[in-house]
Amino acid sequence: MIVFDKPKSLTDAELHYCPGCTHGIIHRLVAEAIDNLGIEGKAIGVAPVGCAVMAYNYFACDMVEAAHGRAPAVATGIKRSLPDNIVFTYQGDGDLASIGMAETVHAATRNENITVIFVNNAIYGMTGGQMAPTSLPGQITQTSPYGRDVKTAGYPVKIAELLSALDGPEFIARVAVNNVKNVNTAKRTIQKAFENQINNKGFSLVEVISSCPTNWGMTPSDALKWIDDNMIPYYPLGVFKDKSAKEETK
């Protein structure tokens, strides 16, 4: 009996992520959703710049590597060209919420029929731990060595709240992957974000609160706890916008 198997939508390539990083879990959840929905042959992914830059080696579907922050624009082009395919982006916080903010907001407001997986770990991982747009007030990073000072560096960007204020997007939710319960919710939510696209409902974004033990300077288990103690209080989990559900309850 097989009790554990790798999703078909992941390749055999060995992931390069640091030990304890939750990117691996999120990759798996995306791949499982693709497997469950039977869309591997139709899926086209767009990889970001950042830690997940080499996601194109890990997902078994067709992949495009985008410039920093531009994944929603690239995905828009792909989806307009191939409306019957399933197009998703996989982006980090620097990519999606800083340099790519315009592309994110406008893909959302156009209700572009794509799925966006937004991994928020409150830090720039690949470049070595700089302050991210989502770094918490007081959070120490390489470029906020005395802690993020909101007087000079401003406040974190709450993407789920911000985007759900728009009329455009179909579905905006925030999940976390720091414990089994949260992972199970994340799995269902990510799958829904793909189902929405299959059903032509439009822009669906799942913000996934993730950890970065290496750059947070913690053990993996402390990092998961830090999510509970610091991240989730600032970034509450839940569904922020679900246009179709709202219509159904009317």
């Binding site: 985008a66 410039a67 531009r70 624009a73 690239v74 082009g77 060209s81 315009a102 592309e103 406008h106």
Partner: peptide, 18 residues
């Protein structure tokens, strides 16, 4: 009509990739 020239060229990149 894209949100910027940057977005427009990246949309071009997306279609070109297909």
């Amino acid at each position: 009509q894209a949100e910027s020239e940057i977005a427009a060229i990246n949309m071009v990149y997306g279609v070109a990739g297909t």
